[in-house]
Write a protein that binds this DNA or RNA. Structure first.
Length: 287
DNA sequence: CTCCAGGGGCGTA
DNA sequence: TACGCCCATGGA
């Protein structure tokens, strides 16, 4: 057990931001995280203080990076034009969220599963896959399952993972594992590629298109300029930006902007409301 | 019951 | 390139 003072760090927002699927609230208010083959509990103590159920060494080697604690998000606010009321409110609403540094293999499978599923359904499916094919470990008496390695899925047939109820995505997942085994894709090399090369490589996987590739780039390879465009983002861009989002304003951290948009756009604080931006506010710059 | 969900492959024009 | 269709299943 260690205690850390961390400004601009909100466990609820991170857990509910749709970028990770294995961070959940525990009874009593703490959160559990299963990642990197480890189990962690975090408790918010108030006044920017947090208790982590790990050693100082593990925190420094694993979790500080995982939660992107060295990044400074505050400069983002300054770049938003004053007339973009939606984005100002979105950043305020999501303040304290972080773009996590997650495992790219886990992100690949997780976001393949995500297609045409709600976030609760994605979590259910991932837990099922972990329970059946992940390594079982024990942390202080608590049993948990790691995310399945590529090796643990190679050689399986669709009938073998039918029990996970992944639907038509089962073949995508198995072929991704095969692509790792055959060497068609090597995740350790993706880290050294530029964004565009990594995107092209990821899209060569069967079942990985533009949107899923961008999620892997953003959440698994920390390319903070990747901009996943899903149904929610498209809905927001249509309602608030006349169908065209001014991406060029946010070069370098477009993905972080996207995450604030996603989190706020899905919230009850925003839904059912009239658009916050005035019509044409974003197209002024283009014409 | 109905409807939709952090999409993508594939065939067609 | 652009569009329509289908995919399988769980939540709400």
């Amino acid at each position: 057990m260690i205690c850390k003072k961390i400004p601009d760090f909100d466990l609820l927002k991170i857990a509910d931001s749709g970028q990770c699927f294995r961070m959940n609230p525990l009874p009593g208010g703490a959160y559990s995280v299963i990642a990197r083959g480890r189990y962690l509990e975090i408790t918010a103590l108030g006044e920017n203080r947090f208790q982590f159920s790990c050693t100082e060494n593990e925190f420094g080697e694993i979790w500080a990076h995982y939660f992107d604690l060295s990044a400074d998000y505050s400069r983002i606010r300054d770049k938003i034009p004053s007339y973009d009321h939606f984005l100002h409110q979105a950043v305020d609403y999501g303040w304290g969220m972080r773009i996590l540094n997650q495992d790219p293999w886990e992100m690949t499978i997780s976001f393949i599963i995500s297609q045409r599923k709600s976030i609760p359904a994605i979590k259910t499916a991932i837990e099922s896959l972990c329970t059946k094919f992940g390594d079982k470990k024990v942390s202080e008496g608590k049993e948990y399952f790691c995310f399945p390695s590529p090796e643990s899925l190679t050689g399986l047939a669709c009938s073998d993972i039918k029990c996970c109820a992944l639907g038509y995505r089962d073949k995508y997942i198995l072929r991704a594992a095969q692509s790792v085994q055959s060497g068609d894709i090597r995740f350790e090399l993706l880290r050294d590629m530029d964004e565009e090369s990594a995107r092209t490589t990821l899209k060569s996987l069967y079942g990985v298109g533009e949107k899923v590739a961008n999620c892997i780039l953003l959440f698994g390879l920390h390319h903070t300029n990747a901009f996943p465009e899903d149904t929610w983002i498209n809905r927001i861009v249509d309602a608030e930006y006349g169908g065209i989002f001014p991406k060029s304003l946010y070069d370098g951290y477009l993905g972080i902007i996207q995450q604030y948009m996603f989190y706020f756009g899905r919230s009850n604080a925003y839904r059912q409301k009239a658009p916050l931006n005035s019509p044409g506010c974003s197209t002024v710059l283009i014409s």
